[in-house]
C-alpha cells in the first residue's frame, strides 16, 4: 500500500501543519512516510502545498504524479490540483472558500465548510483542524488518536490551543 496525499492552500492556512501532523501520526504508527513541503517566497499569503506519502514499504519517490487524496483549502489550489487526482481518489474541498463545480465524475468529493465551522467555534485559525478531522476519518490512513497525540506533542504546553484544536478536529471527524 502506497498512498499519496497533497494538502494545498494559502500560506497561513495551516496546510503545511496539516500534512506534518498526518506524517508524524503515520510515523508514530510505525509506517514509512515522507513529507515534502513546497511553498512560494512569501511567508504569508502565497500558495503553499505539501505532499505526504504513507506506505508499508520503502517509499521510492516522495513526489506525487497522481495523488490518491487531495485537500484543497482554497480556489487556486483546486484549479491547480483537481486534474492530477487519481481516478477513484478522494478530493476534499474547503466549501467555505470554494464554490466551483467539479467537472470530474470519476472521483469522490468531500465538502467540508472548514472556515465556517472554525468561526462558529470562535477559532478561525482552526479551519485546518476541522479539515484534518474530516480527512482522517475518510482516508483511514491513521487513527484519530495518533493525530491527537501528535497535536499534543507539537503544541506541547499550550493547553488552550490543544483543547480548541482537538475540538475542531473532532467536529470535522464526526462530519463525514
Amino acid at each position: 500500500m502506497l498512498i499519496k496525499t497533497v494538502f494545498a492552500g494559502f500560506g497561513g492556512q495551516g496546510v503545511l501543519s496539516m500534512g506534518l501532523n498526518l506524517a508524524q501520526a503515520a510515523m508514530l504508527e510505525g509506517k514509512n512516510v515522507t513529507y515534502l513541503p513546497s511553498y512560494g517566497a512569501e511567508v504569508r499569503g502565497g500558495t503553499a502545498n505539501c505532499t505526504v506519502a504513507v506506505s508499508d514499504e520503502e517509499i521510492a519517490s516522495p513526489v506525487a504524479s497522481s495523488p490518491d487524496f487531495i485537500v484543497a483549502m482554497n480556489q487556486p489550489s483546486l484549479v491547480r490540483f483537481q486534474n492530477q487526482i487519481q481516478s477513484g481518489g478522494v478530493l476534499f474541498i474547503n466549501s467555505s472558500l470554494i464554490e466551483a463545480e467539479i467537472p470530474r465524475g470519476d472521483i469522490e468529493i468531500v465538502r467540508v465548510p472548514a472556515n465556517s465551522i472554525a468561526e462558529e467555534l470562535g477559532s478561525p485559525k482552526s479551519a485546518n483542524m476541522v479539515m484534518l478531522g474530516a480527512f482522517t476519518k475518510k482516508s483511514n490512513l491513521v487513527s484519530v488518536s495518533s493525530v491527537i497525540e501528535e497535536l499534543k506533542s507539537t503544541l506541547k504546553k499550550k493547553q488552550k490551543l490543544i483543547a480548541i484544536n482537538q475540538k475542531a478536529l473532532m467536529i470535522g471527524y464526526d462530519l463525514v
Partner: peptide, 9 residues
C-alpha cells in the same frame, strides 16, 4: 532544496 525540506523518519 527538496532533500533539505523533506521530512522522513
Amino acid at each position: 532544496a527538496m532533500l533539505g525540506q523533506m521530512m522522513e523518519p
